[in-house]
Simulated assay, not measured.
Amino acid sequence: MTEYLDTPEARRIAYNLTPGTGPGVVFLGGFKSDMEGTKALALENWARAQGRAFLRFDYSGHGVSGGAFDEGAIGDWYEDARDVIMALTEGPQILVGSSMGGWISLLMAREHPEKIAGLVTIAAAPDFTEDGYWASFDQETRHKLESQGSVEVPSDYGDPYVITRRLINEGRTRLVLRSPLALPFPTRFLQGTADSAVSTETALRLLDHADGTDMRLTLVKGADHRFSTSECLTLIKTALAEVIDAQQ
């Protein structure tokens, strides 16, 4: 059943919490996605079958949470994740971050490592506002963004995305690939080679940049950004099982 948390930042966040043993699993979704996606629901069913605690939620401006998507930024969504994890979970958690959720899970790992027992990322997109959108904009688009406050960019998932000046500027204060990034817990990165949104180069850059003693990257030939075929879902569960086993 969907419940709501009112955060210290006065945002109303929708979530579904399955009770169970720890360490619990927290799913962090992607840019403009919600907690009803294939991966989130498949992992919830997996966790319930194991009697393991599981949390999924919608960032502000996403799904059925309060707020407007176009007014949000990476820092807001990081705060949403931090607030629900701190308020609704007990002890260290295993984070599963998909796309933008991968970036946010890395921010959690950097700012609150005491709450992280392990990490699984799926097509992680760290720093995508800077290295993806801003880097790809020509001078005309950059000028329009600065002068008008937003631009529209095509999306593979329906309506164009509205990229705001605040999203870009605030994102620059949340970058994780420009300074040391310690991941001192079991970490598994998953990446498809046919991903048109996040390149294998990004995955390799993250692997090379982060510092950890139990860190692996799995490249899946032909898998796309959704990473939600039955084979991909099995790989996610396998990665999760490895991280859980490493807790013993």
Rank of each mutant, 00 (worst) to 15 (best):
H143A: 15
H143C: 05
K144P: 02
L145Y: 10
L145V: 10
L145C: 06
E146R: 15
E146D: 13
S147N: 09
S147Q: 14
Q148G: 05
Q148C: 08
G149H: 13
S150H: 15
V151Y: 00
E152M: 14
E152C: 09
E152Q: 11
E152I: 06
V153D: 07
P154R: 03
P154Y: 04
P154M: 03
D156Y: 09
Y157P: 07
Y157S: 06
D159G: 07
D159Y: 08
D159C: 04
D159V: 07
P160F: 12
Y161H: 03
V162G: 03
V162S: 09
I163P: 01
T164F: 15
T164C: 12
T164V: 14
R165K: 15
R165A: 10
R166M: 02
L167N: 06
L167I: 09
L167R: 13
L167A: 15
I168E: 00
I168C: 02
I168Q: 01
I168N: 02
E170D: 13
E170A: 14
G171W: 00
G171R: 00
G171Q: 02
R172I: 03
R172E: 02
R172L: 03
R174D: 04
L175S: 08
V176S: 05
R178M: 10
S179I: 04
P180L: 04
P180T: 09
L181D: 11
L183Y: 00
L183P: 02
L183H: 01
L183K: 00
P184W: 07
P184H: 11
P184I: 05
P186K: 02
T187N: 05
R188T: 10
R188H: 07
Q191E: 12
Q191T: 14
Q191H: 12
G192C: 01
G192P: 00
